[in-house]
Computed example of a mutant assay.
Amino acid sequence: MTEETPRQATIFDVARLAGVSHQTVSRVVNDLPNVRSSTRVRVEEAIKKLRYVPSPAARALVTRRSRTIGLIATGGTEFGPSSTVLYFNAAARDARWSVFTANMVDSNPASVRGAIEAFLRQNVEGIAVISGHEGSVDVVAGMELTIPLVALEATRHVGLATVGADQYSGARTAVSHLVELGHRSIAHLAGPAYSVDARERERGWRDELSGHGLAARVIGVGDWSPMSGYTFGSTCSLEGVTAIFASNDQMSIGLVHALNERGLRVPDDISVVGFDDIPEAAYVSPPLTTVRQDFERIGRDMLSTLLARIDGDGTTSLPHSVPELIRRSSTAPARTTP
């Protein structure tokens, strides 16, 4: 004997419970005018009690709108983009919008264009791009679409609304912290060349050093992974270096492990600063000084910017948020030479 699946509530069930017509329920669901406030409250209570979920197709017929968004997400499991995707989707649910998502490991132009074309067939009202790959943004911007677009981007992009954190400012804050601790030879482990974020962090490192009359001498390039941080820490020449600014926390974790294997103590011999403030950063040994990005704010700002453009208010971009330095035990005053 099998258990019978509960029947999903319909608009007519809601109407009966609220004591109104199904047309009135439809007007409440689609947030249309000319419904008395007391009636609206009664219908909303019935919807909640019955756990009624309106049909997107039926809603579109009434409003002439799909209330759907397309989301291009590339970069696999990279912490920043994946966190932003989660908060973007949460904000969309709160706003009662549906999101069609195309997740991609890389930013192959043909795949990105194919996803956009699929979104258009589904009548999405706008498209968001959350990607660590600059090429994804370029592909979408180059398609000259007639629906609103918004992208996660460290720098402004002509003709495209952008939202993000000020990566350049965050990097300068990290390097300034090390300079204040007396460090004068500060190396950098950069992220991959395809990443606008990585390039902005490197630029911030260079400019902050230059502003203090210091040379940007030692630099390596990683791929965001702990392994690339470990490789840099194992093989690079660190003669005279007393601090390293790494472009993300995962690379910092691999880097610290390699330094320990080389007999270099963090922070006694070399201070290390990361970027992002991933959950593990506070619990590694030593706890990692890093630059925190507010991914929840970024995801919600992306959604609000896109919805504003869909509503035609002319919004182009919100001010980029400023990352915050989180001081922990991986940084200390520069060692003194006997």
Rank of each mutant, 00 (worst) to 15 (best):
L178W: 07
D269E: 15
A46N: 05
T68P: 01
D313T: 07
T2V: 10
P287C: 03
L189V: 12
R292D: 06
R7Y: 08
F100M: 06
A15K: 09
S304L: 07
P338G: 03
A246H: 02
R121F: 04
R292C: 04
S185D: 07
G164N: 08
P148F: 05
S26T: 07
G70Y: 01
V25N: 04
Q167T: 05
A95Y: 00
S107T: 15
V14R: 01
G274H: 04
A161D: 11
A165H: 04
F12G: 00
M104S: 02
S317D: 01
L149Q: 01
D313K: 03
G229W: 02
T316M: 05
R40I: 12
L61P: 10
M143Y: 04
S83K: 01
E44L: 15
T5L: 14
Q293E: 09
I244F: 09
R262K: 05
H188Y: 06
I253T: 06
N89C: 14
G233L: 15
V196R: 03
E117A: 10
R16Q: 10
I11M: 09
G220F: 08
P286N: 08
V179T: 04
S37Y: 05
A246L: 05
A190Y: 09
F12Y: 05
H157S: 14
S38F: 14
I130V: 15
E153N: 02
I310T: 07
I116H: 04
K48G: 14
M104N: 00
G159A: 08
Y168L: 13
E261L: 03
T231Q: 14
D138G: 03
D249M: 11
G19C: 15
A9D: 03
N260M: 12
V124Q: 01
G213R: 02
P267R: 02
S37D: 13
S136L: 13
L50I: 15
E134T: 03
T162K: 01
V291K: 02
E78T: 09
V241N: 11
V29H: 06
T316Q: 03
G19Y: 14
V175C: 10
I244A: 06
F79R: 03
P109A: 05
R96K: 15
D249C: 10
D94N: 06
V284I: 15
P338A: 03
E117K: 08
V29R: 02
R64Y: 12
S169L: 06
S304M: 03
A161T: 11
I244L: 11
S271W: 13
S330A: 12
V29C: 09
H133G: 08
T2H: 07
L303F: 08
I127Y: 00
A161N: 12
A58E: 09
G114H: 14
V266F: 12
D138I: 05
N248P: 10
T331E: 11
L238R: 06
R300P: 00
M302F: 04
